[in-house]
Amino acid sequence: MTRPVPLLLVALALAVPLSLLAGRVWLDPASTPNAAIILGELRLPRALLALVIGGGLGAAGAAMQGYLRNPLADPGLFGVAPGAALGAVVALWFGFAASPVMVPLLALAGAGGAMALLGLIAGRTAGVAPFTLAGVMIAGLAGALTSLAISLAPNAFAMSEIVTWLMGALTDRGWPDIWLAAPLTLVGIVLLRLAGPALDALTLGETAARSLGVNPARLQWLLIAGVGLTIGSGVAVAGVIGFVGLIVPHLVRPLTDRRPSSLIVPSALAGALLVLIADVVCRILPLVTELRLGIALSLIGAPFFLHLLLKMRRGLA
């Protein structure tokens, strides 16, 4: 059942120390000057943040695919990520770029707003399809407002801040970001794991799931809270990072018994591993400025998504 978990833990145990040494400056703990400072203040928090964000994205993606019974689902569908991005953009718009607190806080507020809207809608409809459509509408609205903020940016500096931030990155993040994101993400992953049995039942369709004792309203709340906390806190500290939530469950699924519940924890671990590796690649690529993590992951993700679509079409033919 949890066969991939030990495997992924071993991979992480190998990857984390390596990621600490890798970078524009390869660290040799014995001889590099200031090695302790570079490790403790720059690379360790950055590696931990990659693990936290990747873990949240992976778990949320696995839960969303289980909930929608669709391998093409992505945590972005609920509108939490665009909501959080809108909050951060508002903070940048008002010139809080220098404040280490305001951007994440307003991003969390944006995520909370999207979750509250979803919650209001969830009270009225228990069906998967209308609920998801509502999420897509929230995503569209937040996206439009974000574009509006960019087009009305008070000055070129704010506009460039916003656009750069939206690309998602782990550069210049520190311990406060971890203290913010790690607990929220952890709680979110636990909530998503609690939704596991109900997601398993949903494999048989909505009516059959109810006949197995699933309470659709409780499931919706667990998903709103779980996806909201993982994705909201991730966007708050790292900006928008796409495709991880989509790809990771696909990579992990063949290693499991394919039940949605047995996918959530392995997806969290694999997401952590993927974001960690992608961030290291961004760091060591010999480019003039560092490649943004969000861009790098989308560059990997988009072709993979296409490959997936083609494979599914062949499967149906």
Binding site: T203, L204, S211, L212
Partner: peptide, 26 residues
Amino acid sequence: IGYLPQAGEVAWDLSVRGLAALGRLP
């Protein structure tokens, strides 16, 4: 009460045993 809906949907490619084990969820 065990209920078997008409559509017979199985969203994920579970094994036969995995499918049967879903009956233990309640």
